[in-house]
Design a protein around this nucleic acid. Structure first.
Length: 348
DNA sequence: TTCACTATGATTAGCCCG
DNA sequence: CGGGCTAATCATAGTGAA
């Protein structure tokens, strides 16, 4: 089998490659940046330039869980000695959602789901498919009908929820797919918001695999600067690795997401300190310097900047990295550079 | 105001094949 | 090596009901 582009420096089942890192970008601070893999290559080259030539590691989360999620990760972490978090998650939809197997027809060969999108409304599609299935009265529909249905299933990421019945994923199912505990996003917002926030999140098992090399480096805990935190995927991944979170500065502008992170922080029994900020542009060099007077250094700067101007799903404003939201990427490298400056200055 | 739902293609990369 | 084909995509703006 040919090696896929989406296995990065190594995934379970694929050999671990080594790399030589530019000494200029060696940690600490370690950094970890994430975004969609399928943006124009030109934009990834642009991003690489802003990370002093560090190239993204492209990884598909299908090697870690039951859904596709091709993403690029730019980081300066060691790539040897990676470990999976336990328990290992279900690798197929059928294992993840056992109730679907009862209704999953033999002519639907899917075992993995597609990327989580933020669309939730496809009732008319689903009812149309149900009518098609009703027409075949329980028997396998004709091949051309099967093909049509499979295409819709693929396009809308539908699962079998009853006899001849298809539906999109519910928020609690997306949480499990992405490696969160069930109900991670419950209570803070409505269904629309939950799906949106989840769709923007890390896949925990994938990210934790990359971050696992930090555990032996920081046996007593880490001080983390989490940018574009969202629902706290980075924090959850580190916690599931058993890494003590000594201090987390979490920057997230969405109030619902902030509440979810704060709620998780309490629920998971954290003993460190969480400081939440709203807007990354408010995290100026001066503010950061004051923060670091209190905290000391940051061991890790982590986050994924907005992708909506880069995503192929965007019909309206796919204008590239310089777009109104995606241009916040430059704040990531700006903040990282500010952190480096403070740390470097102290070394002298 | 809040919320669920709906309509809306283009741009990619990766194939295959001549 | 280049053109054609296939398949997939962390989305947005608008509508209407509650």
């Amino acid at each position: 089998k040919p090696k896929s582009r989406m296995t990065g420096f190594g995934t379970p089942g694929f050999p671990v490659l080594s790399r030589i890192l530019n000494p200029l970008v060696e940690g600490p601070p370690y950094f970890y940046f994430e975004n969609v893999a399928s943006m124009p290559k030109k934009e990834w080259e642009n991003i690489t330039r802003h990370f002093d030539g560090v190239e993204p590691e492209f990884v598909d989360s299908k090697y870690f869980c039951a859904c596709r999620r091709p993403r690029g990760y730019v980081h300066n972490l060691p790539v040897e000695g990676r470990k999976l978090i336990l328990p290992e998650p279900p690798m197929t939809v059928q294992e993840l959602l056992p109730r679907t197997t009862e209704y999953w027809p033999s002519w639907d060969p899917r075992t993995k789901l597609h990327c989580i999108n933020t669309r939730s409304a496809c009732n008319s599609i689903c009812s149309g498919l149900r009518n098609l299935l009703l027409a075949s009265d329980g028997a396998d529909p004709p091949l051309d009908v099967q093909k049509h249905i499979l295409k819709k299933c693929s396009s809308w990421n539908l699962i079998w929820t009853g006899p001849g019945q298809l539906a999109p994923l519910e928020p609690h199912e997306i949480e499990l797919l992405l490696g969160f505990d069930e109900d991670h996003t419950r209570g803070a917002s409505n269904k629309t918001d939950r799906i949106q926030s989840l769709g923007n999140s890390f896949q925990i098992n994938t990210v934790a695999y990359h971050l696992s090399v930090l555990k032996p480096l920081y046996p007593t805990g880490m001080r983390v600067l989490s940018l574009f935190s969202g629902i706290g995927g980075a924090e959850v991944a580190l916690h599931k690795l058993g890494i003590h979170l000594h201090y987390v500065v979490s920057v997230e502008i969405n109030q619902n997401n902030k509440i979810m992170v704060e709620s998780w922080w309490k629920k998971s029994g954290q003993r460190g300190k969480l400081k939440q900020l709203d807007n990354i542009t408010d995290l100026t060099s001066d503010v950061l310097q004051d923060l670091m007077e209190e905290i000391g250094e940051f061991d890790l700067v982590i986050g994924g900047s907005p992708c909506n101007n880069l995503s192929g799903n965007n019909r309206v404003s796919r204008v590239g990295l310089a777009g109104p939201d995606s241009s916040l990427f430059f704040e990531f490298t700006r903040v990282l550079e500010d952190v480096r400056k403070v740390m470097h200055r102290r070394k002298r």
